[in-house]
Amino acid sequence: MKRKIERKDWLLFALIILFALLPAIPGIRENSLTMHVILMIFLMASMSQSWNIVGGYCGQVSFGHSVFFGIGAYGAAMAVVKYGMTPWPGALAGAFLAAGIAVLISWPVFRLSGHYFAIATFAIVEIFNRLFMVWYWVGGAIGLDYSITEQGIVNFVWYQSKVGYYYGALVLLGLVFGVVRWIERHRIGYYLRAVREGQETAEALGVDSTKAKLSAMAVSAFLAALCGAFFAQYNYRVDPPMVMSLDMSMKFVLVTILGGTGTLFGPLVGAAVLVPLQEYSRAFLGGLGGGVDLIIFGLLIILVVVKQPKGVVGIFSYLRRRMVERESVGKEND
């Protein structure tokens, strides 16, 4: 099957190239907070995009993705801290392990529908979190701390400049978005959307819904684990509350929903709104104490949902509709 390159693809390419060029601007490269915020946008967008495969395209709202994220993070950290290797084999092993565990867990859990499924996924997070807290081989509650190693791509750590992490996150973003775009355009993508719209109907049409859901979960977990590995490398530390918690799971869901579920650019838009909001409100208000930044953050989330339940992408399409309407009204008046 030959597919023509759509406008979406061009946009994706253009964005990635634009992002790749950003650090060339000295004002950005030298500003570590800006770099931090942008690369956190990349990471968050990648995380929620990986969630989007299952949660958006396939319609299975999972609160369990921090488990996969955590396994990836632990993979990288175990390789570095326990075995003194580079994080790469660990991250890869973590990703495959996460995919395997995802299939293993999801196979029974996918039988559940709606809220029962959602609660089951978060029960799984709590179980994993608490087991990792007492599993001393992987550091238990104490966690795994990186010691100082040589900087560079081999060890995937940089201490002074963030340029390395920036491009690392960008590659991750490109990979995750690329995979999702591929899924979106291929048969599996249609299967997933069919399952979302109605499992019985989909099966009647000959879609093996279990297989579709499981493969979506595996890919999703694999990508989430890679994001986790990046997170560990970026923070020089892993412990269960950091990576394997409901808090972390909520981030996957929050960003996607805020941006718009089941859309290619939703996660990026969601991250581009949420991350700066979070980081800058903390930077400017967090020091006051008393959680003023979190009060405002909470209010804004409520506001977005109440005013525009389709996410920020929804706001754009709303604006567009308004513009189109106005144009046509204008024409009529002429």
């Binding site: 946009l11 800006t34 581009a272 567009r320 513009m323």
Partner: peptide, 22 residues
């Protein structure tokens, strides 16, 4: 067409904002 370019603009605006704030 329009949606995409608007989305693009929005993302771009956010990035510009980031730089400006700092």
């Amino acid at each position: 067409n329009k949606v995409s370019s608007r989305r693009f603009l929005a993302v771009f605006a956010v990035v510009v904002l980031l730089v400006g704030t700092l």
